[in-house]
């Protein structure tokens, strides 16, 4: 029993992180139809910057916002320099560009910071709380709470604000959105900025539990993508639930099957979803417009 609860806790914790990554994917996908392969790097920028600042004596309440701002700048620069100039390019071109951005950011972090593994102390200390004989880290509560808040804010933003509606309009038909007077360029820039912030926040919250290093982004992106696919591409609720499910699947794989292959769980999920329900839990199968 206590073992089972323990796996649930660790699954929910990492699942909440994957959910945030998936939400970041969803935001950019909804606005521009691009899957941003450098989404994982935003998470690492958040974690690494915070870790390095804290190590040099900056308090967490100051380090975290700086890290998030750094990621937002990276996201906006990515849009301005690489995505916008390639507008209207085939999908393959955009995929290659965001992969290039991912590798570039990875190299940049390796150069600016280092190749070490980083972490810092949890926000509310390291003393775990015992529940049903299992240990829950206070940082896990921060991570779960943070992801939920981000999710609620995003849904509210997309459905209730003018800028959010502009993002949805742009995704549904870019030409119509332009005709309706929406500045689609700044709308997409906004989506990239928000997505980067979401990813970086996940990194700031997660690093005390998951640790981070310059090359951690790829695996993060792979799992976030699996989460988004499982939930249904484009759906924020799907991203949240998909993330939690991937986290749980991974934790139980590590616990009951083999911790060596826990990272393979996300990959298997991608395969099973492709085979059996290409639309995911909350998504629809898209029809190609010719």
């Amino acid at each position: 029993m206590s073992e089972f609860v323990q796996f649930c806790f660790s699954g929910l914790t990492v699942g909440a992180i994957y959910a945030s990554v998936a939400l970041g994917f969803t935001l950019i996908y909804n606005a521009s139809g691009v899957i941003n392969f450098s989404q994982g790097e935003f998470v690492v920028i958040g974690g690494m910057t915070t870790a390095v600042l804290i190590a040099s004596g900056v308090p967490i309440w100051l380090a975290a916002p700086i890290a998030i701002i750094a990621a937002v700048i990276a996201g906006m620069t990515l849009y301005k320099l690489a995505i916008e100039p390639a507008r209207g390019a085939p999908l393959v071109t955009l995929i290659i560009i965001t992969i290039g951005a991912s590798i570039f950011l990875r190299g940049l972090m390796q150069t600016v910071f280092d190749k070490q593994i980083h972490r810092y102390e949890g926000f509310s200390g390291e003393q775990s709380i015992a529940i049903f004989g299992a240990a829950l880290l206070p940082q896990s509560i921060w991570i779960l709470g943070g992801s939920l808040v981000v999710f609620v804010l995003l849904v509210w933003f997309l459905s209730r604000t003018k800028a959010g509606n502009a993002i949805r309009a742009t995704s549904s038909d870019i030409l119509a959105a332009k005709l309706a007077g929406i500045n689609t360029n700044s709308t997409m820039m906004l989506a990239f900025a928000l997505s980067a912030a979401t990813g970086a926040l996940a990194g700031v919250l997660a690093t005390p539990v998951t640790f981070t290093s310059y090359d951690a982004g790829v695996l993060m992106a792979l799992k976030g993508f699996a989460a988004m696919m499982l939930g249904g591409v484009g759906s924020p609720a799907g991203a949240l639930i998909g993330g939690i499910l991937i986290g749980l699947i991974e934790a139980f794989t590590a616990g009951y099957i083999s911790s060596d292959y826990k990272d393979a769980a996300a990959f298997l999920v991608i395969f099973l979803v492709l085979f059996f329900m290409p639309g995911g839990l909350f998504g629809m199968v898209r029809v190609e417009r010719v």
């Binding site: 320099l81 690489a82 100039p85 390639a86 390019a89 071109t93 290659i96 560009i97 992969i99 290039g100 951005a101 991912s102 590798i103 570039f104 950011l105 990875r106 190299g107 940049l108 390796q110 150069t111």
Partner: peptide, 19 residues
């Protein structure tokens, strides 16, 4: 030394300037 950044930059630049 800067292999990652170089490869990333080459991918982006080629796609943007010389597809």
């Amino acid at each position: 030394e800067y292999e990652n950044m170089m490869f990333g930059a080459i991918m982006i630049l080629t796609m943007v300037l010389m597809r």
